[in-house]
Amino acid sequence: MKTGTFSELEIQQKENPKPVIIHIYTSWCSVCKIESFQLNKDKKLVQLINENFYLINFDPEKMKEKISFQGKEFNYLPNGNSGIHELALALSKNKNQPLYPLWIILDKDQNLIDYHEGLFKPEDMKRKLEKVLKF
């Protein structure tokens, strides 16, 4: 799947507005790894996402740069040997610690369409994304 960054997203949305998928995960999350493998294996899903959405894969424990998103700036919050990006906390309903994987789907105007915590099966994701495109 083609993925981008938050900084690219601003430019892309001005040139060619599309719905956005933000996938929040961590490198240590075993469910995230299984899910990623299953989703990437589904060729129709990959094509659907690549053609109709902007996808951002976001590991909030590794991303330490400042991110501008929806007119606000978000920073990495160090905590001893680890930390978390405050954008992940802002997007998550659980403000102390997001549940992984977390999927945020926004329309082309950056309005929240869907919020999905935990494993997102390819068939369920395809159904959800096809509904988004019908709006």
Score class of each variant (00 low, 15 high):
F74C: 04
E123W: 00
K33D: 13
H85A: 06
F120L: 13
C32D: 07
N81A: 12
F135L: 14
I84F: 03
P101I: 02
Q97A: 11
L45T: 08
N50R: 03
Y76L: 09
N16L: 10
K93P: 01
Y100G: 04
S7N: 13
P19I: 01
I84T: 11
L48Y: 02
D107V: 07
K14C: 05
A90M: 07
F6A: 04
E65R: 12
Y54V: 02
I56E: 03
K131P: 02
Q110N: 14
L45V: 09
G71Y: 06
I84M: 10
K33E: 14
K44Y: 08
H116Y: 06
I67W: 01
L112K: 10
F74R: 00
T26D: 01
I113Q: 12
I84V: 14
I24T: 12
L102G: 01
K108L: 08
K93F: 04
I49D: 04
L102Y: 00
P19K: 02
S36E: 15
K72T: 03
K18G: 09
K134G: 06
F69I: 04
E65K: 14
M125A: 11
D114L: 10
N52L: 08
E123Y: 00
I84C: 06
S7L: 09
Q13A: 09
V46L: 08
L99V: 15
I56M: 01
K93G: 10
L48N: 05
Q38N: 14
G80E: 12
E10Y: 00
L102P: 00
D107R: 07
I56F: 04
K44D: 15
K131H: 10
F58P: 04
S30M: 12
K44H: 10
S82F: 09
P60F: 03
L99S: 14
N75C: 11
Q70K: 15
G80V: 10
K41I: 07
L87E: 06
A88H: 02
I11G: 05
D109P: 00
C29T: 10
E130T: 14
K44N: 15
L112Q: 10
S82G: 14
L48V: 09
D109Q: 10
W103E: 05
E51K: 13
L9T: 09
H85E: 08
K33N: 11
F135N: 15
S27W: 04
T3M: 08
N79A: 13
D109N: 15
V46H: 06
C29F: 05
M1P: 15
Y54F: 09
P17E: 05
I34L: 14
M1W: 05
N96E: 14
I49N: 06
N52D: 11
L9D: 05
D107S: 07
Y100H: 05
K43N: 11
L102F: 01
K134D: 12
R127V: 12
N111D: 13
K108Q: 14
G4V: 08
A90W: 08
Q47K: 14
K126I: 13
K134N: 13
I34T: 15
M63L: 11
L87Y: 03
S30G: 12
K43A: 12
F37E: 15
P19E: 03
L133I: 08
H23K: 15
E8P: 02
T26Q: 01
